[in-house]
Design a protein around this nucleic acid. Sequence first.
DNA 1: TTGTATGCGTTATCAC
DNA 2: GTGATAACGCATACAA
Lengths: 340, 340
Amino acid sequence: MDVSFCGGFMRRRATAKNVADAAGVSKWTVIRAFTPGASITEESKRRVLQAAAALNYSPNLLARSLATNLTHQVAVFVDDFANPQKLPFLETLTDRLQAEGLVAMLININNHFDHVRALLNADQRQVDAIIMFGTAFRSETLNDRRLGRSMPPMFVLARDSQIDGVPAVVCDAELALKEIVDHLYEKGYRRPGFMAGAPALSTALRRRHHFIDFWKQKGVDETAVISAERYSAQAGAESVRHYLQNTDAKDRVDVLMCENDILAIGALDEIRGQFGLRVPQDMAVIGFDNYELGGASVYGLSTYEQPKDEMVEVVIEMITGRLPPETVTLPGKLIVRNSA
Amino acid sequence: MDVSFCGGFMRRRATAKNVADAAGVSKWTVIRAFTPGASITEESKRRVLQAAAALNYSPNLLARSLATNLTHQVAVFVDDFANPQKLPFLETLTDRLQAEGLVAMLININNHFDHVRALLNADQRQVDAIIMFGTAFRSETLNDRRLGRSMPPMFVLARDSQIDGVPAVVCDAELALKEIVDHLYEKGYRRPGFMAGAPALSTALRRRHHFIDFWKQKGVDETAVISAERYSAQAGAESVRHYLQNTDAKDRVDVLMCENDILAIGALDEIRGQFGLRVPQDMAVIGFDNYELGGASVYGLSTYEQPKDEMVEVVIEMITGRLPPETVTLPGKLIVRNSA
DNA sequence: TTGTATGCGTTATCAC
DNA sequence: GTGATAACGCATACAA
């Protein structure tokens, strides 16, 4: 046996061959002892397991992957770490993946590591699937000549997919915005505003579109659109500050819908703290995501909650093949507090 | 060549053998074309690369790992997804890992998947290293009989390591608490309180210990300790509510140090919003972590910033072997705003 | 510089 | 039920 010592401990892991020698059987019998449902006598299995325990043997998953063409690894692409809402999603996602014997390779999509490089890398590492978690990517990306024709199955989570054959699992934006606008209308607001983050994102555009559209259906034709630089509290604050400084009080919106809670919290903070306005009396605010802090009493932020657990569940079911890979839209829940 | 069709596209990836056949060389020449610094003629390399591009060939990293005993995968253990501070750390960590050609396997440590299972799994997957990111684990864990004697190198990030041979990279707690106490003393506070989260964690204990200790050095012998159930704004709020309800105004602390910003934000919210007290006049508050929202104007939370980038850098250097695997303690930075 | 043989630790398939 | 042979795709060592 090839043994090198390092710090007094064996460095190499024991292999099936080692266990076989120790148990006095062939290595295939060892494999069988570790294969559920394989045909092997109780006696053999017992001896193998005992020898395995003594040698601290466990199958090398790398070698197994090479032989089976299955790595049980799923790449998870993330490109926006500013939104704290990513964290509970990641928690649920990793937990559910692990329950299925899968593991998440967390891949940071940024300027140094774009979608094409990430796809190439994930493909080279033979992942079983790729989850684009909240990251938008364009169809051109898939047509990049560096990419092979046989990418692993891809899924978009918490964002729309414009790509044919790449299913998405999303919160129903139309239903969400309908519920939000219905609620705001009922509360008596008539001069709506919308704070948008990244303008290029389909999900963002969709929310904005539905927001404006449902107000039109109520006979309110004009919706102010305010844009923020990024998805952060700072950006939300700056954005609303600019708006308030440049808009006469009589012309201002009476309710501001922010694309997510982080923007909303920044905006709320600025509206009350810096401009001394009352929320919701002078200007109401509503967000999206139900980020924990929004529920804190200083904020009391009204918002809309995405069905996180169900969304993750559906992606898992698709990855494991228990559900067909088709776009699924799930209903969320309006959370009414006192900001709107 | 073994080709199966699926949706009109080839399903199997091209192998070195395929490229070799196409280029009219042996597969070892193909390998050489993809091995930096290998001895190969320009002409051969050109032909191989051309054939490889035509076939969309790229080396199978799985097979490479099996042969080299290096997966370029690093397991990252996380057990607390409630602290949003994890996100910027994960962002930096994944970015730096990727820059080194490594990738992070994000592993969720929870009731269903404890440290032993996670270690076993990471080992079976042949990861090159394991980073315990903010997760405490006891030395008994390493002695679990299910674990082999040849675990991958382990590192603890952003938390103390009590384990011999497992280096930690941490923010200098002693220096941090000294700076904090010095600042608070200078501001005139004399009745300190400390809000603690999980009581079992060494990092937590250390912060508390130093806080109490430095006050003693200033001649302030009594530090009230308030404990929160979890690390969340809710828990921080509940904890301080309980304290305020059960403590006469004259007996209350004049400054409350919270173990992290999330607790501090919850506490701040409760102190001002529900009890109508002024911060910092009636009660000052200081946190730890410099979470973005703490800097928002409603909070103006004074806090202490961990040297995130440097900490991650040091872990990376240790993993890549450029730095010896020894515990490193780095200085952070006091951020003074107006809450204390 | 290039080709050959062998090994990495499994799994799949076939004889016994 | 068990052992043997081939294969997974690449890397290393050696020979030509």
